[in-house]
Design a protein around this nucleic acid. Sequence first.
DNA 1: CTTCAACGATCAACATTCGCATAAGATCTA
DNA 2: TAGATCTTATGCGAATGTTGATCGTTGAAG
Lengths: 221, 221
Amino acid sequence: MRMLIVEDDRDLNRQLSEALEDAGYVVDKAFDGEEGHFLGDTEPYDAVILDLGLPQMDGLSVLERWRRDGHSMPVLILTARDRWSDKVAGIDAGADDYVAKPFHMEEVLARVRALVRRAAGLASNEISIGDVVLDTKAGKVTKNGMSVKLTSLEFRLLSYLMHHKGRVIARTELVEHLYDQDFDRDSNTIEVFVGRLRKKFGSSLIETVRGLGYRLQEENA
Amino acid sequence: MRMLIVEDDRDLNRQLSEALEDAGYVVDKAFDGEEGHFLGDTEPYDAVILDLGLPQMDGLSVLERWRRDGHSMPVLILTARDRWSDKVAGIDAGADDYVAKPFHMEEVLARVRALVRRAAGLASNEISIGDVVLDTKAGKVTKNGMSVKLTSLEFRLLSYLMHHKGRVIARTELVEHLYDQDFDRDSNTIEVFVGRLRKKFGSSLIETVRGLGYRLQEENA
DNA sequence: CTTCAACGATCAACATTCGCATAAGATCTA
DNA sequence: TAGATCTTATGCGAATGTTGATCGTTGAAG
């Protein structure tokens, strides 16, 4: 984990970076707003600790600029205890958390842990086979980056196959997972839908294993 | 957005819920730890405000139980100003933020906005899709810079959808987050309001995914 | 190599479910 | 009470899922 500390008080900056380094983070330091903004704009940090009162460019402006430019790394703001209105402004500017000075180092560490932990939980789930990508969180499928429109059953079928790619899936297994309870066992809906999927994604995506079922392959020879 | 307030001080609870309701949230209230825990365990909240000093079961235990049971909704903790050690314990127990009593209502609102925003993976108070921009702080929506007048429910619906843009949202999920407690589940209000929003913003904004729900798209093909 | 039967693919027609528009009724609010 | 807002009811039309008939393919036996 790589952190940035933007704090003009050299003493405080050093204290913070030591504590964070002890906690196992890699730390970059900036001592004014401009330098801080530049670093945050160009380097990929897992979290930033940002003082509000800074020379050159104040912390709030730094934060606003970052957010305007689409940087979404977690930012923990530091400011004087009594300036509560700064909290509101800071939070609305896109800060993720806030600590008042003077603070207990232990509290800062706890909050940084929380920020990093939280940021880790935001990944979207994607399964891909060749140029076909299924985003389970968005419920969306793309081929070569182009969104492909699927009906509900088409999606469920593809999703099940992709979740078990490489394995041969029996038709009965598909029926059991796509339908609730009993469903006419000698029906050819599955075949129909496999056909429709092949029409949308090309015939090479779903391989049929005669007598057994279907399989999705990572690559072909 | 649907919130839960767990606070035994009736006066404070009422103040909080009024402020939140004015801000456009749907609010459920609990006055002791047990009741609060039960609600948080069974209903899907977008954020929770949790007092630490509670009868029946203290706030920290409530929070720990929720987290142990896998509930990950954002939780904002309230406690007395001087008990800073509670902050560390609370944050490590899985709290997302913290406010000391007595507090400014405006600060609580800002923090709640931040929590909801963050849970949606957003860095700013403005969410935009195409030419439609939702300002969660001001509670306003513009299209091409022109302010659009929305009724309360229209706003809540759009807000929830925009906070989860890209994802398919089931109608049941919408009902759970736009209304408190029980609401006739087989009603077509949601459809009616989707229709009204489409009339105001154009039919391309809200995509319907047949059999699953609705989705707001960033870009189209 | 040919033939045949089993299996799978394809297609069009059908039935059904689902979502939408509209408007009228109910409820809230100033 | 009037006006705004929310909810319910209904009928239509289209998207979706299902069916059965027919056609193509495969692989093994003769």
